[in-house]
Structures are given as C-alpha cells and as structure tokens.
C-alpha cells in the first residue's frame, strides 16, 4: 500500500502542473510566461504517461545479461509509455524554442511583451473601418 502513494502522487502532480499551465495561459499577461505555462502543460502530460507505466515494487525495464527472464517479465515496468515520452519531450522542447523565437521577434518589432498589446485584433479592426 505504501508505495502506491507514489503513483497517485505522480498523477496528482501531473494534473496540478496542467492546471498551473492553463491558469498561466489564461491569466498571465506576459507572453514569455504564457509560453512557459504552455511548456508546463506538456510536462504534466509527460509525467502522467510515465506514471501509467510505473509498476509497484518493479524494476526498470532494462534487461541486463545476468538477469533471469521469468523474474524480469514479472517485475519490469512497461516500456512503451517511456518510449513515447522521449519523443514527446523533444517535440515539446522544439515547439518551445519556436515560440520563444517568435516572442523575441515580436518584441523587436513592437517593444512590448504584453499579450493584450501584442495579440489583439486592433490592427485588423482599424483596417476594417477604413
């Protein structure tokens, strides 16, 4: 019983990270903070997938030469989620890099990092009213 707290705690942590990310995306004004919030959502989902592959009293899924096959099959954690998370982490990092680059370009053009000033529809509205 004692160790299942680990898995439950990981799931709760994942959910909290996702909620923190969503709150940051909705309530914070700074574009960089919004981007970091988006990265936290990705972290939370990754953590959830990892927690799904966890096995109580298990061992890592790496098969070494001197291991017994049967006990390995009985104890090893499920490796498929971990393989997926590796891909997911890299995708998240590259997306984050592109978003940061866009934020820097927008700052250089407009001189502000505030989302309400940058990402509004004022420009379009003015054009429509010409």
């Amino acid at each position: 019983m004692a160790i299942e707290i680990v898995q439950c705690g990981a799931l709760i942590t994942a959910a909290l990270l996702m909620i923190i990310g969503l709150v940051a995306l909705v309530y914070l004004d700074n574009v960089l903070k919004k981007i970091i919030g988006a990265a936290f959502i990705g972290d939370g989902v990754n953590l959830l997938i990892i927690a799904l592959g966890y096995r109580v009293n298990g061992i890592p899924y790496i098969f070494l030469q001197n291991m017994d096959v049967n006990s390995f099959l009985g104890q090893a954690s499920y490796p498929l989620p971990f393989a997926l998370v590796l891909t997911s982490i890299v995708i998240g990092a590259s997306t984050l890099a592109v978003m940061l680059a866009l934020a820097v370009v927008l700052y250089k053009r407009n001189g502000t990092l505030s989302a309400t000033a940058l990402l509004n529809d004022k420009k379009l509205g003015e054009e429509n009213n010409e």
């Binding site: 996702m18 969503l22 995306l25 574009v31 919004k34 981007i35 988006a38 990265a39 959502i41 990705g42 939370g44 989902v45 959830l48 997938i49 799904l52 498929l80 989620p81 997926l84 997911s88 997306t95 592109v98 978003m99 866009l102 934020a103 370009v105 927008l106 053009r109 940058l118 990402l119």
Partner: peptide, 28 residues
C-alpha cells in the same frame, strides 16, 4: 503573420497536449 503564428502555437499547445492526454489515458 508573426502574431498569428504565436497565437496558433499557444492554442496548439493546449489542443495538442490535451489530445496527447487522451491518447495517454487510452494507452494506460
């Protein structure tokens, strides 16, 4: 176009992440 790109990526992070959450739960 840069503003639109950033908006699309931020919204995409929400949409994509939660789709991955759905996939993860099915996987689990």
């Amino acid at each position: 176009n840069y503003e639109t790109g950033l908006k699309y990526m931020l919204l995409g992070e929400v949409g994509g992440s939660f789709m991955l959450l759905g996939i993860a739960l099915i996987l689990g």
